[in-house]
Design a protein around this nucleic acid. Structure first.
Lengths: 180, 180
DNA sequence: CTGCAATAGTTGGGAGTTAAACTATTCTGC
DNA sequence: GCAGAATAGTTTAACTCCCAACTATTGCAG
C-alpha cells in the first residue's frame, strides 16, 4: 500500500538543488510548473491519506462516495448515482454487487419501471457510512491544518472553476458528453 | 486496492431527496465541500483537456511525463523514473517496452551495474517530446486563462504543500518507507 | 397491436495501476 | 571467496476505469 511519493522536495533538509531538482535529484523540467502533473500527485496523496485515516475499516475509499451518495439520496438509480459520482455507470455494477453482497445496500426493483433499481442503505450500511464520515472529518481537518481554513475555500473554488471550465471546453471542442 | 477516488469529509445531516441539489439533481451532501472529491474531478478534467490538446499525436498523455522525465534526465534508471513520476516501477515496464518498440527511447545496460538500464531518448523521441511540449504549453496557457496567472502560482503552491505534507504524514503514520 | 427509438443496467475488452513474488546482479561481512 | 541482504527490473494477479455492445424494459408512433 505504501507508495513512494518522493517528489517535490518542498521542505526537508538537504535541498541544495533548489534549481529544478526535487528531493530525489531528478530534474522535473517544465513539469515543475504544470498544474496537471501536480493535480495528479495531490489527488494521489489525498487519496492515500484518506485511506490511511480509514484503514481498519473494511471498505475501500472509493466505495465511500457511493455509500454517501446513496445515504443522501435514498432510492436513487444507478445511472443518477454514476453521474453524481462522475464515473461511468458500468463501473458501478461490480461495486454495487459487492456492497449488496455485504448487505450494506439494497437494490429494489420498482413496479413503475422494471428496468431500474432503487438504491438504499441497510442499517449496517448506514452505520458504516457514519464511521467513514468520521474518518473523512479527521482527514478534512488535516487538510485544513495543512493549507489553512482560509485558503481552503479559495483552493476549492479554484478547483471547481477548473472543473467547470474544462468540462465546458470539452463540449465546445467536439468530444461528446451527454447533457442532462 | 488503491487506484480510485478520494473522498474526505464532514457534513450536516439532512435526509431529503429533492433539494439543494447539484447540477444532476442529486444531493452531494458533504461531498460538495470536500477537497479530495474535487481534486479527483479536476485531475480528470485536466487529463482529458490535455488529451484533447494532444489528440492527433500518437502517444497517450500518460506517457508524456515519462518522455519528459527521460528527456530532462538522460541516463536515468527505471526506478528513479518511477519515483519521479510517482508510479510503481512495475507500471513502467510495459510503458517503456512500448516506447522502446516504437524507437522513441533506448534502454542501455551499463557495465557498472548490469541490473539497471540507462534510459535515453532517441532523436525521434526528442522530436515527439517537443511536439508534446507545445501541446502542454497550450494546455497550460488554457489553465492560466481559466484560473488567472496570478492565482495559478498560489494554486500550485497549495498543491505542492498538500503533496509534501500528506506524504510526510504517511511516514509519521506508520506506513513503513524506505529511508532516503 | 406492431415496430422502433430511448433508457436502465450488465457484459466484455483494453488501458492503467498497485502489491507481491520472482530473477538476476551487486553489496556486505566474515 | 561465499552466504545472505539489498537492489533493478519483470511478471502475475487483482482492481478500477472507460467505452462500446448487448439485454430487457418502457414509450411512442402508426
Amino acid at each position: 500500500m505504501v507508495a513512494e511519493l518522493n517528489i517535490l522536495g518542498n521542505g526537508p533538509a538537504r535541498t541544495r538543488r533548489t534549481e529544478a531538482k526535487a528531493s530525489s535529484g531528478v530534474d522535473l523540467g517544465p513539469l515543475e510548473g504544470w498544474i496537471g502533473f501536480h493535480l495528479r500527485l495531490a489527488q494521489n496523496a489525498s487519496f492515500q491519506a484518506f485511506a490511511r485515516e480509514a484503514r481498519g475499516i473494511d471498505l475501500s475509499p472509493g466505495r465511500f462516495a457511493v455509500l454517501m451518495l446513496i445515504g443522501r439520496n435514498p432510492g436513487i438509480s444507478q445511472t443518477a448515482l454514476s453521474r453524481a459520482n462522475a464515473r461511468d455507470k458500468s463501473s458501478l455494477t461490480p461495486v454495487l454487487d459487492d456492497l449488496e453482497r455485504r448487505k450494506l445496500i439494497k437494490r429494489t426493483r420498482t413496479r413503475r419501471d422494471r428496468r431500474s433499481y432503487q438504491l438504499t442503505l441497510t442499517p449496517a450500511g448506514d452505520r458504516l457510512l457514519q464511521q467513514l464520515t468520521a474518518c473523512a472529518e479527521r482527514h478534512d481537518a488535516n487538510l485544513d491544518r495543512i493549507i489553512g481554513t482560509k485558503n481552503k475555500a479559495r483552493f476549492l473554488q479554484t478547483l471547481k472553476k477548473l472543473i467547470a471550465e474544462l468540462a465546458g471546453d470539452e463540449r465546445a471542442n467536439g468530444a461528446s458528453r451527454e447533457r442532462d
